[in-house]
Design a protein around this nucleic acid. Structure first.
Lengths: 150, 150
DNA sequence: TTATCTTTTGCAACATTGTTGCTTTTTTGC
DNA sequence: GCAAAAAAGCAACAATGTTGCAAAAGATAA
């Protein structure tokens, strides 16, 4: 079972890389797989750890950069100086990200979730300001950490 | 004129430090003054530069930490791995920040503004999630960078 | 499949950013 | 001004991020 899931993810990873015109390499496959296996978002450090010391730090930095450029992953700003990355939905592509969903960081487990179904609200800005992208990060307790009777 | 403003800011800085039970030192005064003189938010690096190489890097780090703890300044998350800081309104204090306003980052000039009058909206979360603090960062063009006829 | 060209990786060296312990200096309260 | 307390400065270190270049792996076409 474990193995089967891994293979499915590997195939999906390869498909995703090909779609974006990227060479299929071990590190790219592995990193995409990590995102596919993962419920939440990943920071650079997480990826290095989860990859099992297999790849050079530089490779991870460059791979993440390529993925962001190609619209495969997007960044999530946090208050602790550690950018997190998460897979983009299908409508993102090279040069244009469309991540209009809210992000959620759990106080308890620290996991960052993409709430794909929660759309960022319209913000009414003061006169003179023009809005581009709106980023919303909610901090609180996630569904897994919620205590049953509270 | 220049000098007079500086003095006013210095007095205000001293008042702010005293209110929070902090010793009055050159670095603290200077750093508070930088925030008072400044329209937008400041990153650690900005402060080091603006202070004119006068203070040790460690002093700046520790001062900012103290200010955050005391509720004098608050942090603003960004997507570029550089936390920014801005003055809190009066209703923040030690151990409890109340920054329910929206932040704005200008694409053109890079300045980060606190839009004190724009309140963060209510976000409806999926079942099981409990919201604590909500952080909204809008990216776009600010009032100063707006071209007259567009 | 192999030869060749292109892309990516890994390494080394470096730059920047942030942290910690400890001594000296400054501030505070008397 | 003096003693106690707080903060600054220094040094050393840790973590994070960047760049150039040679070696390795991937893509392409005969």
């Amino acid at each position: 079972m474990q193995k089967e899931t891994t293979i499915i993810n590997e195939n999906q990873a390869i498909r995703l890389l090909k779609q974006n015109g990227l060479s299929i390499t071990d590190s790219r496959k592995k990193i995409v797989q990590l995102f596919l296996e993962q419920d939440g978002a990943l920071a650079h450090g997480d990826i290095e750890k989860k990859a099992g010391e297999k790849f050079d730090r530089v490779t991870v930095y460059r791979t993440l950069q390529v993925f962001v450029d190609k619209g495969i992953i997007h960044t999530i700003p946090t208050a602790d100086n550690s950018i997190r990355y998460a897979l983009c939905k299908d409508d993102c592509g090279e040069g244009h990200h469309h991540d209009h969903h809210v992000h959620f960081v759990c106080d308890n487990c620290g996991v960052t979730y993409c709430l794909d179904d929660v759309v960022t609200p319209e913000i009414k800005l003061p006169k003179g300001y023009t809005a581009g992208h709106v980023e919303v990060v909610v901090e609180g307790v996630c569904k897994n950490c919620k205590t049953p009777f509270s």
